[in-house]
Design a protein around this nucleic acid. Structure first.
Lengths: 177, 177
DNA sequence: GGGACCATGTAAGTTGTTACATGATTAG
DNA sequence: CTAATCATGTAACAACTTACATGGTCCC
C-alpha cells in the first residue's frame, strides 16, 4: 500500500503529470521504491477517484497535471506519523541461508559475487550523493538522510560479505569436523 | 519467484509436510522470507505438478510428506549459483524521504520511533542467535551467516537513526537559512 | 517527413494477503 | 468430551510485472 503514498508524497512536493512522476520515480526513488508506468497510471486514477488528488489543469498531448488535495495531504501526513511495520523480504539472504545445499566452491563464488554487487551498489549510491547539488531545504535534508541510510546499509553488507568469505574459506582449509 | 525456491530449499534440507514447512518458515525464515499458509500449500501443489517435489508418503490426518526430487535439486542448485538481482523495496526509507512534508517535531518523533524499532529488532536477532545451539554443519554455518548479515544491517540502521535525529535536532536549533 | 520524446491507458498473468471452510487426532 | 493442535485446501482481493496499444508534439 506504499506506492499510493509514494505518489501522494511526490505530488505533495510539487504537482505534475503521470509522466513527470514516472521520471521522478526513476531518478529519485529508483533505489527505494521502484514503480512501473502501468502501476503509476492505475494508482493515479484511483487516487483521483478517492479525491486525494485532482486534475489541476491540462496541457498539450493529453497531459493531465495532477495536484494533491487537502484530503490527500491529511492522508499523507497521517501515514507519515508512524513508521510502517513491514518485514523486508531479502532474496539474497534467503539464498545465503540455503547455501549449504551446493558445493563449498559454488557457495564461495556466490558470496564473492554478492560482495562485488554490493560494492558496485555502494559506489553508485556514493556517486549519486556527490552528483547532487543539495540545498538546505527540508526536502533535500530528508532525501539526503534516506540516501545516507542506504549507503550505510550497503556498506554493512559489503563488510559482511567479505568476512563471510573469510569464514567459509577458513572452514574449507580446516574442516575440524 | 523466491517462495518457490525457499520451499524447495527447506525440502532439500529435509522432507516434511506443508504444515512442517510452515513451522520452519515461522521459526527460521520469519525475518528473511515470510510466507502465509495459503501461499505455501498452493506453491507445494505447483512444485509437485512440475515434478520438482513428490509425495514420499502419507500419514495420519491427511498428512502428505513431501520430498525433493532429483529435478528439484538441480533447479535449486542452479538458482543458488548466482545471487538474485532485486531492488529491495524499503517503505521505511520511502517515509524518511518524504518526511519534509510534516512538521519538524512529527518528523523527529518518527525517526525516534524508527530507532526504537530497529533497536528492538536488533535485540531480537541477537537473542535468537544466542538461543540456538549451533552445530558445525554446513546448514548451520550458512544459517548463522545469514543471521549475522541481518544483525549487521540492523545495527547500521540503529546507528543511522540515532545520527539522523542529531542532524534534525541540530537544524531545528540553528535553522541557518 | 521522420525520429525522439511526451503522454496515457488496458490486458493478462503472477505473487502475496486475508478470510473462509473443513476435518482428524491427541492429550487431559 | 472437548480443547489444542495437526493438517489441507479454496476464494476474493490487492499489488506488481510485462507486454500491448495508441496518439500528440517538437525539432531537424
Amino acid at each position: 500500500m506504499s506506492l499510493r503514498h509514494a505518489a501522494l508524497g511526490l505530488l505533495a512536493q510539487s504537482p505534475g503529470s503521470g509522466y513527470d512522476l514516472l521520471k521522478r520515480f526513476e531518478h529519485t526513488l529508483a533505489h527505494v521504491w521502484p514503480a512501473t508506468q502501468s502501476q503509476l497510471y492505475t494508482e493515479l486514477g484511483r487516487l483521483e477517484a478517492q479525491g486525494l488528488i485532482e486534475v489541476a489543469g491540462t496541457g498539450a498531448r493529453n497531459r493531465k497535471e495532477y495536484a494533491i488535495t487537502a484530503a490527500g495531504r491529511d492522508e499523507l501526513q497521517e501515514w507519515l506519523r508512524h513508521p510502517v511495520r513491514e518485514v523486508p523480504r531479502d532474496a539474497n539472504l534467503l539464498q545465503v541461508f540455503l547455501l549449504g545445499e551446493v558445493d563449498a566452491d559454488v557457495a564461495a563464488a556466490h558470496l564473492a559475487e554478492l560482495e562485488g554487487r554490493a560494492r558496485e551498489h555502494l559506489a553508485a549510491l556514493q556517486s549519486l550523493d556527490r552528483s547532487i547539488a543539495w540545498d538546505d531545504s527540508a526536502r533535500d535534508r530528508y532525501a539526503r538522510l534516506a540516501l545516507d541510510s542506504g549507503i550505510r546499509q550497503r556498506r554493512a553488507i559489503t563488510e559482511w560479505a567479505a568476512d563471510a568469505q573469510g569464514a567459509v574459506r577458513a572452514h574449507e582449509d580446516d574442516p575440524s569436523r
